[in-house]
Protein backbone atom coordinates (compact mmCIF):
# COMPACT_ATOMS: atom_id res chain seq x y z
CA UNK A 1 0.00 0.00 0.00
CA UNK A 2 2.78 2.39 0.89
CA UNK A 3 4.36 1.68 -2.43
CA UNK A 4 1.07 2.55 -4.12
CA UNK A 5 0.94 5.94 -2.43
CA UNK A 6 4.51 6.59 -3.35
CA UNK A 7 3.63 5.83 -6.90
CA UNK A 8 1.04 8.61 -6.98
CA UNK A 9 3.79 10.83 -8.16
CA UNK A 10 6.02 12.87 -5.97
CA UNK A 11 5.16 15.83 -8.11
CA UNK A 12 1.43 15.79 -7.38
CA UNK A 13 2.06 15.31 -3.68
CA UNK A 14 4.35 18.28 -3.74
CA UNK A 15 1.78 20.39 -5.56
CA UNK A 16 -0.91 19.42 -3.07
CA UNK A 17 1.39 20.37 -0.20
CA UNK A 18 2.04 23.76 -1.76
CA UNK A 19 -1.71 24.19 -2.18
CA UNK A 20 -2.40 23.37 1.47
CA UNK A 21 0.39 25.56 2.80
CA UNK A 22 -0.85 28.37 0.66
CA UNK A 23 -4.45 27.98 1.84
CA UNK A 24 -3.27 28.09 5.45
CA UNK A 25 -1.33 31.29 4.84
CA UNK A 26 -4.32 32.80 3.09
CA UNK A 27 -6.66 31.81 5.94
CA UNK A 28 -4.43 33.34 8.54
CA UNK A 29 -3.63 36.58 6.78
CA UNK A 30 -6.92 37.30 5.03
CA UNK A 31 -9.53 35.35 7.00
CA UNK A 32 -12.47 37.55 6.12
CA UNK A 33 -11.90 38.43 2.48
CA UNK A 34 -10.29 35.31 1.16
CA UNK A 35 -12.32 32.60 2.85
CA UNK A 36 -15.61 33.71 1.38
CA UNK A 37 -17.85 31.66 -0.86
CA UNK A 38 -18.09 34.64 -3.21
CA UNK A 39 -14.37 34.84 -3.57
CA UNK A 40 -14.14 31.15 -4.34
CA UNK A 41 -16.92 31.47 -6.87
CA UNK A 42 -15.20 34.25 -8.71
CA UNK A 43 -11.90 32.37 -8.61
CA UNK A 44 -13.61 29.28 -9.97
CA UNK A 45 -14.97 31.28 -12.90
CA UNK A 46 -11.69 32.99 -13.67
CA UNK A 47 -9.52 29.92 -13.69
CA UNK A 48 -11.79 27.95 -15.96
CA UNK A 49 -10.86 29.54 -19.25
CA UNK A 50 -7.08 29.41 -19.09
CA UNK A 51 -7.33 26.19 -17.10
CA UNK A 52 -9.06 24.46 -20.00
CA UNK A 53 -6.49 25.72 -22.43
CA UNK A 54 -3.68 24.61 -20.13
CA UNK A 55 -5.11 21.08 -20.16
CA UNK A 56 -4.99 21.12 -23.94
CA UNK A 57 -1.45 22.46 -24.04
CA UNK A 58 -0.56 19.77 -21.50
CA UNK A 59 -1.76 16.95 -23.75
CA UNK A 60 0.21 18.41 -26.65
CA UNK A 61 3.34 18.79 -24.55
CA UNK A 62 3.07 15.21 -23.33
CA UNK A 63 2.86 14.14 -26.97
CA UNK A 64 6.19 15.84 -27.51
CA UNK A 65 4.98 19.14 -28.93
CA UNK A 66 3.40 22.38 -27.85
CA UNK A 67 0.29 24.34 -28.77
CA UNK A 68 0.68 28.10 -29.00
CA UNK A 69 -2.61 28.57 -30.80
CA UNK A 70 -5.08 27.73 -27.98
CA UNK A 71 -6.06 31.29 -27.21
CA UNK A 72 -6.82 32.03 -30.82
CA UNK A 73 -8.77 28.84 -31.33
CA UNK A 74 -10.82 29.89 -28.30
CA UNK A 75 -11.41 33.34 -29.78
CA UNK A 76 -12.27 31.96 -33.19
CA UNK A 77 -14.78 29.54 -31.68
CA UNK A 78 -16.24 32.25 -29.48
CA UNK A 79 -16.60 34.60 -32.42
CA UNK A 80 -18.17 31.90 -34.58
CA UNK A 81 -20.73 31.08 -31.91
CA UNK A 82 -21.33 34.75 -31.18
CA UNK A 83 -21.92 35.65 -34.81
CA UNK A 84 -24.26 32.68 -35.32
CA UNK A 85 -26.28 33.55 -32.26
CA UNK A 86 -26.40 37.19 -33.25
CA UNK A 87 -27.74 36.50 -36.69
CA UNK A 88 -30.16 33.76 -35.67
CA UNK A 89 -31.54 35.36 -32.52
CA UNK A 90 -33.74 37.66 -34.59
CA UNK A 91 -35.25 34.93 -36.70
CA UNK A 92 -35.32 31.91 -34.43
CA UNK A 93 -36.95 31.34 -31.13
CA UNK A 94 -36.35 28.73 -28.48
CA UNK A 95 -32.87 27.60 -27.58
CA UNK A 96 -32.23 25.20 -30.46
CA UNK A 97 -30.15 27.74 -32.35
CA UNK A 98 -27.99 28.35 -29.29
CA UNK A 99 -27.24 24.67 -29.05
CA UNK A 100 -26.47 24.60 -32.75
CA UNK A 101 -24.07 27.54 -32.40
CA UNK A 102 -22.32 25.85 -29.52
CA UNK A 103 -21.93 22.65 -31.50
CA UNK A 104 -20.58 24.49 -34.51
CA UNK A 105 -18.11 26.38 -32.29
CA UNK A 106 -16.83 23.12 -30.85
CA UNK A 107 -16.52 21.68 -34.33
CA UNK A 108 -14.54 24.75 -35.35
CA UNK A 109 -12.22 24.17 -32.40
CA UNK A 110 -11.83 20.51 -33.32
CA UNK A 111 -11.12 21.42 -36.93
CA UNK A 112 -8.46 23.93 -35.90
CA UNK A 113 -6.86 21.28 -33.71
CA UNK A 114 -6.95 18.72 -36.51
CA UNK A 115 -5.35 21.31 -38.79
CA UNK A 116 -2.52 21.80 -36.26
CA UNK A 117 -2.12 18.05 -35.92
CA UNK A 118 -1.99 17.67 -39.69
CA UNK A 119 0.76 20.28 -39.98
CA UNK A 120 2.77 18.61 -37.25
CA UNK A 121 2.30 14.97 -38.21
CA UNK A 122 1.95 14.77 -41.97
CA UNK A 123 3.88 17.89 -42.92
CA UNK A 124 6.46 17.38 -40.14
CA UNK A 125 6.60 21.04 -39.15
CA UNK A 126 8.01 21.41 -35.64
CA UNK A 127 5.03 21.93 -33.32
CA UNK A 128 6.23 25.28 -32.07
CA UNK A 129 6.44 26.71 -35.58
CA UNK A 130 3.29 25.06 -36.85
CA UNK A 131 1.15 26.48 -34.07
CA UNK A 132 2.98 29.78 -34.27
CA UNK A 133 1.87 30.01 -37.89
CA UNK A 134 -1.60 28.66 -37.28
CA UNK A 135 -2.27 31.09 -34.44
CA UNK A 136 -1.68 33.94 -36.86
CA UNK A 137 -3.99 32.21 -39.27
CA UNK A 138 -6.76 31.58 -36.73
CA UNK A 139 -6.46 35.11 -35.41
CA UNK A 140 -6.56 36.38 -38.98
CA UNK A 141 -9.70 34.42 -39.75
CA UNK A 142 -11.27 35.76 -36.56
CA UNK A 143 -10.46 39.30 -37.61
CA UNK A 144 -11.83 38.72 -41.08
CA UNK A 145 -15.13 37.21 -40.00
CA UNK A 146 -15.65 39.74 -37.20
CA UNK A 147 -14.47 42.69 -39.31
CA UNK A 148 -11.89 43.35 -36.67
CA UNK A 149 -14.43 44.43 -34.09
CA UNK A 150 -15.85 43.01 -30.91
CA UNK A 151 -18.72 40.57 -31.35
CA UNK A 152 -21.42 41.41 -28.85
CA UNK A 153 -25.18 41.37 -28.55
CA UNK A 154 -25.22 37.78 -27.42
CA UNK A 155 -28.75 36.57 -26.56
CA UNK A 156 -29.55 36.27 -22.90
CA UNK A 157 -30.55 32.67 -23.37
CA UNK A 158 -26.84 32.01 -23.72
CA UNK A 159 -25.20 34.57 -21.46
CA UNK A 160 -27.25 33.33 -18.50
CA UNK A 161 -24.88 30.34 -18.42
CA UNK A 162 -22.19 32.78 -17.38
CA UNK A 163 -24.00 33.41 -14.11
CA UNK A 164 -25.74 30.09 -13.52
CA UNK A 165 -24.82 28.28 -10.34
CA UNK A 166 -25.20 24.53 -9.97
CA UNK A 167 -25.45 23.67 -6.28
CA UNK A 168 -23.66 26.90 -5.54
CA UNK A 169 -20.86 26.17 -8.00
CA UNK A 170 -20.51 28.27 -11.16
CA UNK A 171 -21.58 26.37 -14.27
CA UNK A 172 -18.27 27.11 -15.98
CA UNK A 173 -16.34 25.48 -13.17
CA UNK A 174 -18.53 22.39 -13.36
CA UNK A 175 -17.62 22.15 -17.04
CA UNK A 176 -13.96 22.53 -16.11
CA UNK A 177 -14.21 19.76 -13.52
CA UNK A 178 -15.89 17.43 -15.97
CA UNK A 179 -13.16 18.11 -18.52
CA UNK A 180 -10.44 17.44 -15.93
CA UNK A 181 -11.99 14.13 -14.93
CA UNK A 182 -12.65 12.99 -18.47
CA UNK A 183 -9.21 13.96 -19.67
CA UNK A 184 -7.51 12.34 -16.68
CA UNK A 185 -9.30 9.12 -17.48
CA UNK A 186 -8.44 9.35 -21.16
CA UNK A 187 -4.78 9.99 -20.49
CA UNK A 188 -4.26 7.45 -17.73
CA UNK A 189 -6.68 4.66 -18.44
CA UNK A 190 -7.09 4.37 -22.17
CA UNK A 191 -5.01 2.95 -24.92
CA UNK A 192 -5.00 6.34 -26.63
CA UNK A 193 -3.60 8.03 -23.51
CA UNK A 194 -0.78 5.52 -23.24
CA UNK A 195 0.03 6.05 -26.88
CA UNK A 196 0.27 9.82 -26.37
CA UNK A 197 2.87 9.24 -23.65
CA UNK A 198 4.82 6.77 -25.77
CA UNK A 199 4.79 8.92 -28.90
CA UNK A 200 5.98 11.81 -26.74
CA UNK A 201 8.84 9.71 -25.40
CA UNK A 202 10.16 8.41 -28.70
CA UNK A 203 8.15 8.90 -31.87
CA UNK A 204 10.35 6.61 -33.94
CA UNK A 205 10.13 3.73 -31.50
CA UNK A 206 6.36 4.29 -31.37
CA UNK A 207 6.17 3.83 -35.12
CA UNK A 208 8.20 0.63 -34.93
CA UNK A 209 5.91 -0.59 -32.15
CA UNK A 210 2.89 -0.28 -34.40
CA UNK A 211 1.47 2.98 -33.08
CA UNK A 212 -0.04 5.22 -35.74
CA UNK A 213 1.79 8.36 -34.73
CA UNK A 214 0.04 10.69 -37.11
CA UNK A 215 -3.35 9.72 -35.84
CA UNK A 216 -2.25 9.99 -32.20
CA UNK A 217 -0.85 13.46 -32.80
CA UNK A 218 -3.88 14.65 -34.73
CA UNK A 219 -6.16 13.44 -31.96
CA UNK A 220 -4.00 15.11 -29.29
CA UNK A 221 -4.19 18.47 -31.01
CA UNK A 222 -7.88 17.95 -31.67
CA UNK A 223 -8.43 17.52 -27.93
CA UNK A 224 -6.54 20.73 -27.37
CA UNK A 225 -8.70 22.44 -29.99
CA UNK A 226 -11.93 21.22 -28.44
CA UNK A 227 -10.88 22.30 -24.94
CA UNK A 228 -9.94 25.70 -26.33
CA UNK A 229 -13.31 25.97 -28.04
CA UNK A 230 -15.05 25.23 -24.75
CA UNK A 231 -12.92 27.89 -23.09
CA UNK A 232 -13.93 30.34 -25.82
CA UNK A 233 -17.62 29.51 -25.37
CA UNK A 234 -17.44 29.97 -21.60
CA UNK A 235 -15.67 33.28 -22.06
CA UNK A 236 -18.37 34.35 -24.51
CA UNK A 237 -21.01 33.64 -21.85
CA UNK A 238 -19.06 35.31 -19.06
CA UNK A 239 -18.14 38.59 -20.71
CA UNK A 240 -20.96 38.69 -23.23
CA UNK A 241 -18.60 39.33 -26.13
CA UNK A 242 -15.74 37.89 -28.17
CA UNK A 243 -12.82 39.46 -29.98
CA UNK A 244 -9.95 38.19 -32.12
CA UNK A 245 -7.20 39.21 -29.73
CA UNK A 246 -8.74 38.56 -26.33
CA UNK A 247 -6.45 37.04 -23.73
CA UNK A 248 -3.23 37.10 -25.75
CA UNK A 249 -1.20 36.83 -22.56
CA UNK A 250 -2.82 33.49 -21.79
CA UNK A 251 -0.60 31.70 -24.32
CA UNK A 252 2.50 32.01 -22.19
CA UNK A 253 0.53 31.47 -18.99
CA UNK A 254 -0.79 28.13 -20.16
CA UNK A 255 2.73 26.92 -20.90
CA UNK A 256 3.91 28.11 -17.49
CA UNK A 257 1.08 26.26 -15.81
CA UNK A 258 1.72 23.06 -17.70
CA UNK A 259 5.40 23.00 -16.79
CA UNK A 260 4.63 23.97 -13.19
CA UNK A 261 2.16 21.10 -13.15
CA UNK A 262 5.01 18.71 -13.82
CA UNK A 263 4.81 18.05 -17.54
CA UNK A 264 8.20 17.36 -19.06
CA UNK A 265 8.85 20.00 -21.74
CA UNK A 266 10.52 17.31 -23.85
CA UNK A 267 7.39 15.17 -23.79
CA UNK A 268 6.46 11.76 -22.48
CA UNK A 269 5.81 12.61 -18.85
CA UNK A 270 3.25 14.58 -16.87
CA UNK A 271 -0.27 14.19 -15.60
CA UNK A 272 -3.60 15.95 -16.01
CA UNK A 273 -4.31 16.22 -12.25
CA UNK A 274 -0.92 17.87 -11.87
CA UNK A 275 -1.87 20.53 -14.40
CA UNK A 276 -5.26 21.02 -12.74
CA UNK A 277 -3.69 21.55 -9.31
CA UNK A 278 -1.21 24.01 -10.81
CA UNK A 279 -4.14 25.96 -12.27
CA UNK A 280 -5.80 26.12 -8.85
CA UNK A 281 -2.62 27.20 -7.09
CA UNK A 282 -1.99 29.99 -9.55
CA UNK A 283 -5.57 31.26 -9.36
CA UNK A 284 -5.46 31.25 -5.55
CA UNK A 285 -2.21 33.13 -5.66
CA UNK A 286 -3.41 35.75 -8.04
CA UNK A 287 -6.71 36.27 -6.19
CA UNK A 288 -4.84 36.46 -2.93
CA UNK A 289 -2.62 39.21 -4.31
CA UNK A 290 -5.75 41.06 -5.37
CA UNK A 291 -6.71 41.28 -1.69
CA UNK A 292 -3.89 43.76 -1.18
CA UNK A 293 -4.87 46.93 -2.97
CA UNK A 294 -1.39 48.35 -2.82
CA UNK A 295 0.18 45.34 -4.51
CA UNK A 296 -0.10 45.43 -8.26
CA UNK A 297 -1.62 42.38 -9.86
CA UNK A 298 1.40 42.29 -12.11
CA UNK A 299 3.38 40.85 -9.22
CA UNK A 300 1.67 37.66 -10.23
CA UNK A 301 3.90 37.48 -13.30
CA UNK A 302 6.95 37.79 -11.13
CA UNK A 303 5.83 35.06 -8.77
CA UNK A 304 4.87 32.75 -11.64
CA UNK A 305 8.19 33.19 -13.31
CA UNK A 306 10.09 32.51 -10.12
CA UNK A 307 7.87 29.53 -9.37
CA UNK A 308 8.46 28.08 -12.84
CA UNK A 309 12.23 28.28 -12.58
CA UNK A 310 12.13 27.00 -8.99
CA UNK A 311 9.97 24.00 -9.95
CA UNK A 312 12.29 23.20 -12.85
CA UNK A 313 15.30 23.25 -10.58
CA UNK A 314 13.54 21.22 -7.93
CA UNK A 315 12.51 18.59 -10.48
CA UNK A 316 16.04 18.57 -11.83
CA UNK A 317 17.57 17.92 -8.42
CA UNK A 318 15.07 15.23 -7.42
CA UNK A 319 15.37 13.49 -10.80
CA UNK A 320 19.10 13.42 -10.48
CA UNK A 321 18.84 11.79 -7.07
CA UNK A 322 16.28 9.33 -8.34
CA UNK A 323 18.48 8.35 -11.23
CA UNK A 324 21.49 7.88 -9.00
CA UNK A 325 19.36 5.63 -6.81
CA UNK A 326 18.12 3.61 -9.78
CA UNK A 327 21.62 3.25 -11.13
CA UNK A 328 22.75 1.86 -7.83
CA UNK A 329 19.75 -0.43 -7.53
CA UNK A 330 20.35 -2.01 -10.91
Amino acid sequence: MMAKIKKIDANILRLIMILIVFLIIACVTQPTNFMKADNFRSMAKQMTEYGLMALGVGVCMISGGIDLSCVYIANLSGITAGLMMQSMSTTSSGSGYILLSVLVAILVGAACGIFNGFLISYLRIPAMLATLGSYQLFMGISIVISNGSTVSGIPEGYTMWGTTLLAGIPFAFVVFLICIILLSLIMSKTRFGQKVYLVGTNAKAAKFAGIKNNSVLIRSYMISGILSAIAGLLSLARINSAKADFGSSYTMQTILIVVLGGVNPDGGFGSIPGIAIAVVILQLLSSYLNMFPNISNYYRDLIWGVALIAVLILNFVTNKRKQARLAKAS
Partner: peptide
Protein backbone atom coordinates in the same frame (compact mmCIF):
# COMPACT_ATOMS: atom_id res chain seq x y z
CA UNK B 1 13.78 2.45 -32.87
CA UNK B 2 13.18 -0.22 -30.32
CA UNK B 3 12.74 1.29 -26.91
CA UNK B 4 11.08 4.06 -24.96
CA UNK B 5 14.16 4.46 -22.79
CA UNK B 6 12.83 6.57 -19.91
CA UNK B 7 9.57 4.60 -19.69
CA UNK B 8 9.02 1.52 -17.54
CA UNK B 9 9.79 -2.03 -18.56
CA UNK B 10 6.07 -2.76 -18.30
CA UNK B 11 5.12 -0.11 -20.84
CA UNK B 12 7.89 -1.18 -23.17
CA UNK B 13 6.82 -4.79 -23.18
CA UNK B 14 3.09 -4.27 -23.51
CA UNK B 15 3.00 -1.47 -26.07
CA UNK B 16 2.29 -3.66 -29.07
CA UNK B 17 -0.26 -5.73 -27.25
CA UNK B 18 -2.28 -2.83 -25.87
CA UNK B 19 -5.24 -3.57 -28.09
CA UNK B 20 -5.72 -6.99 -26.55
CA UNK B 21 -5.37 -5.68 -23.03
CA UNK B 22 -8.06 -3.06 -23.59
CA UNK B 23 -11.73 -3.53 -22.82
CA UNK B 24 -14.42 -2.82 -25.38
CA UNK B 25 -14.91 0.63 -23.86
CA UNK B 26 -11.28 1.42 -24.62
CA UNK B 27 -10.11 1.15 -21.01
CA UNK B 28 -6.69 -0.38 -20.53
Amino acid sequence: EGLFLPQSIIKNITVSKMDELTSKAGIL
